[in-house]
Design a protein around this nucleic acid. Structure first.
Lengths: 232, 232
DNA sequence: ATATATTTTTAGACTTATCTAAAAATTGCA
DNA sequence: TGCAATTTTTAGATAAGTCTAAAAATATAT
């Protein structure tokens, strides 16, 4: 959505442009899907830009030792690159919590603003924000917030789609956090913390009937495949 | 301190780059001192940049009808330019309040972070931040926060230096808000809201002896000339 | 294995915001 | 008033991040 860049007079060594930080974050997220290296095209799609631009930026990141890169081989984050990416993700998610908890934002409204706030440079700001929010462990979509050292708490969660008939659990996160999906969930009163039980599951299209708040609801595989559940 | 710029894909008409916003803000502040028009050099000094860069930017702002500009005649903000400048100042000062009130920042630490936060684009963010902070009227340095319509509350304040012997008032603001001055005030327990009474005033160097918290303190004209007082 | 298709990189260009150096306009002083 | 000093603008460069179009490398498929 945004293409931003920042320059700071008397730039400190560990300060990167908005664009660099956005690339590092994108590579971090894509590395889960492509653990052997993120391709130029995959990154271009994620960044909503052209492959040629990606190549240019990868070279820049590689020169700064933020990524390991060999031509035509894709990129992986270096230790330093991962550190920066995680720090940006931490800031993004803390700001999301702030927006929802303190500023009355709905969970489908926070992303674009957090995309801007995540680039604010101030150690103290984020340390104090964390304290102010009482050290939250998850953002409004259920995604884990890495601690100041960059460690993600591990949660045992499973997709609702993978539950069998009769199984139940607590809704703890969303895989898709686009406004459209989140608004769908709002509309049907599905929110984090709610108990969901699988009443029926169709072999044909994987749709299921679930119990939620004493009511029953039929949902498609596209829905159940994007909801994370902690089984009880 | 910072030179920033932002681009947004599918840029809305009333969105400006960091740099544009910073120039508008600087012109706004300088217009008080130069009501007939802000000179290129004055603006260059304020922006810590070169006159040639200022000329370039002024042309850009003029093309966008944010300033009125005739070559060699200096600039003045247009109605639209003033609107944007005030909006940035509003955001800056609200964020300063947030940092001090909620995040334990001292008043000498807020400026650089607020310089970054003031450029975040979100109507809702600033509306909700204002509400969250309970609609503050002044920032931590006593400067007025314009309301959502851009109106500044008018305060009747006077420089401590202009008080005569025997006069007293409440400290309501600082003219200089550099960390060095603010730290000096902290060190001597001078803060907003305190009552100050002029006990003696030297004709020779304008220094004065003031009463503060039952104690007496001798301060130079450089100090009294940067403290705003509301006379009681 | 070789030709085709796809992916990736390179080359050259554009924009924003900056700079230096030189030219033009204005101001100020004697 | 007229020449020097100052201020402002112009001209030409640079850097970051982007783009398009073409070339190079890799992957695929018969």
């Amino acid at each position: 959505m945004f293409i931003n860049f920042v320059f700071l007079k008397s730039k400190k060594s560990h300060m990167y442009t908005f664009s660099e930080e956005n690339y590092l974050k994108a590579i971090f997220h894509l590395e889960r899907m492509y653990p052997s290296g993120v391709s130029t095209n995959a990154l271009a799609e994620q960044m909503e830009t052209k492959a040629s631009s990606v190549t240019d930026m990868i070279k820049k990141l590689s020169d700064k030792d933020l990524v390991n890169y060999k031509k035509y081989q894709g990129v992986k984050l270096s230790r330093a690159g991962k550190h920066t990416a995680v720090s940006v993700i931490r800031k993004h998610r803390l700001w999301e919590v702030f927006l929802v908890e303190k500023l009355n934002f709905n969970w489908d409204e926070v992303h674009d603003v957090a995309e801007q706030l995540e680039h604010i440079q101030s150690e103290k700001l984020i340390k104090e924000l964390d304290r102010f929010l009482e050290f939250p462990k998850r953002d409004p979509h259920g995604d884990p917030i890495p601690d100041a050292e960059g460690n993600f708490a591990v949660f045992n969660k499973v997709l609702l789609a993978d539950l069998d008939k009769g199984e139940a659990g607590i809704c703890v996160g969303v895989r898709d956090s686009t406004p459209a999906f989140l608004q769908f969930l709002d509309k049907h009163n599905i929110s984090l913390g709610k108990e969901i039980k699988v009443m029926e599951k169709e072999d044909f299209d994987q749709s299921m009937k679930i119990k939620l708040d004493q009511a029953e609801l039929r949902i498609s595989h596209q829905i159940s495949g994007n909801l994370y559940i902690k089984t009880t």
